[in-house]
Amino acid sequence: MMHYNKYPEIKPGLKLLKRMYVVTMLFVFGRAFQAVSRVDRGAKEVFAKMPDDFVLDFCVVPNGPHMVVGKDEKGRIKYMGWNPAGKKVTIYMKIKNMDAAFRMLTFQESSCTATSRDRLIVDGDLPTACGVLHIMDLLEVLLLPKFLAKLGVKRYPKWSQLSPVRKWTSRLLTYVRLVA
């Protein structure tokens, strides 16, 4: 006869440190989304193409954390906090697990690499999702020093693509808005 007690039910634990890091990064990214949409020309163009009811939930499945970003009534991009409940999310971008999220947000894997390793599930309108990923690449370039950002994006923009003037104004303004 089997001794059931010898083999108890196991509830896999939490990964608290990773979770804390991811929560922080998602908060920063959320704020930065909002900030960059107000200050950068390129970002404005991308956001303009997105539908008016755009609400993005960028999250780690199954238990979060979440980052909800969307357009408000005036069509401006807004960081809507960490709780998707009650919001009409139009596009989900889900990272399959906490480890993958940590790897991605510590720039061990760029968003493209993560996508090609099937770590990211997109549920919703694909062109919008592409836009979001473009913005993320842009944010990495703007927010991070070059040596870090190079890890995160496929092609770090040269002068001809992103003039230093635009880069530095956008970078400064984004930081200001992020903190303020």
């Binding site: 083999y7 108890p8 196991i10 896999p12 979770r19 697990n97 906490m98």
Partner: peptide, 11 residues
């Protein structure tokens, strides 16, 4: 590795 998931190992 299953940490942070909703999966509960029955045994």
């Amino acid at each position: 590795a299953l940490g942070e998931s909703n999966t509960i190992i029955g045994a």
